[in-house]
Design a protein around this nucleic acid. Structure first.
Lengths: 164, 164
DNA sequence: CGAGATCGTTCAAGTTCTGAATCGTTAACG
DNA sequence: CGTTAACGATTCAGAACTTGAACGATCTCG
């Protein structure tokens, strides 16, 4: 049972509200936005948006064979991805190439510059992770990483089984 | 060191992309949105939006003394909260009362109906948590809950120290 | 009293999301 | 082969959301 028994208290100074702290689902959601909130400013200073960083990461690690697949992996609509790639290309971080085997597709590839900036983004992400998880030792952190990965990996098939 | 060493592989079927799975920060962010994504449809069926559910939760657990404080706790702008409270009030889930001690403020209180719907929302949240964390036993889950709470509680002061 | 701050609210401008329509290309199949 | 359907990338328009500025009412405090 979700341990929500909260007898409303005066609501102290600046802390995390109990209404959130007591509810795992809200906690997880808030953690997600907190990470973005913290990353936004520094990312912007290196000329990236959160979405662009994610896209670079997926480009490097998953080598998608089309924009449609890239969009799916990034959780974006194809129409949204167009603007992202436009921007990455404009900044020389990635480039489109027409797939000669199937000329409808354009394959997006990281440039060396894109790879370098992704590395800087990863360093930033690691720094933010340190800020948030400073109270955990490396083993606990690795464990948390596994738990999160399993949670998302196990739950992944669902988005597809859109039976309606 | 962030373990990102990824030699791009063919990008399998529907799974979680490696670009995300390997990066804790992206994982946490994705988990946050995945939760919302899953909650949205069922919440809508009970007439709530994610934001409204969060607001009900904070109302019950933190008893904020003004809309401004409620907004801060919910991570919303006061101007955004107006629409949320309008809607909650329209649905009979909460009500505004003018604070007689300081007549600028309106104190928002849950109605019994609001409390009941919040309980249903909590049940839904617990169900989604089960889906995502089914692979953890209760002790591990409690541990995860603590870890997340600590991460956010420790990091909370920062939003305030806007020294620029 | 009067200057300045605070609270809730409204409004307008900017941004983003979303779905439909389009164009070129490929696949299916009689 | 030739026609029809499907697919990939793109554009576009309308809706939805965010954000900051401005407002009227109210409080604080010298």
């Amino acid at each position: 049972m979700a341990t929500v028994d909260t007898r409303a208290e005066p609501a102290r100074g600046g802390g995390l509200p109990r209404g959130v702290a007591e509810r795992p689902a809200l906690l997880m959601h808030k953690l997600g936005s907190e990470i973005m909130r913290r990353a936004e400013r520094p990312l912007e200073e290196m000329g990236l948006t959160g979405r662009e960083y994610t896209t670079l990461a997926v480009l490097q690690s998953d080598a998608p064979t089309s924009q449609a697949e890239l969009a799916r992996l990034c959780g974006l609509l194809p129409a949204q991805l167009v603007a992202v790639i436009d921007e990455l290309e404009r900044d020389g971080l990635a480039e489109r190439r027409r797939d000669e085997a199937d000329r409808r597709r354009s394959v997006v590839r990281l440039t060396p510059k894109g790879r370098r900036l992704l590395a800087r983004g990863d360093a930033l992400a690691a720094r933010i992770e340190d800020e948030l998880l400073g109270h955990l030792d490396p083993a606990q952190r690795a464990r948390l990483h596994d738990v999160l990965r399993q949670a998302l990996e196990a739950s992944w098939p669902l988005p597809a089984d859109d039976a309606e």
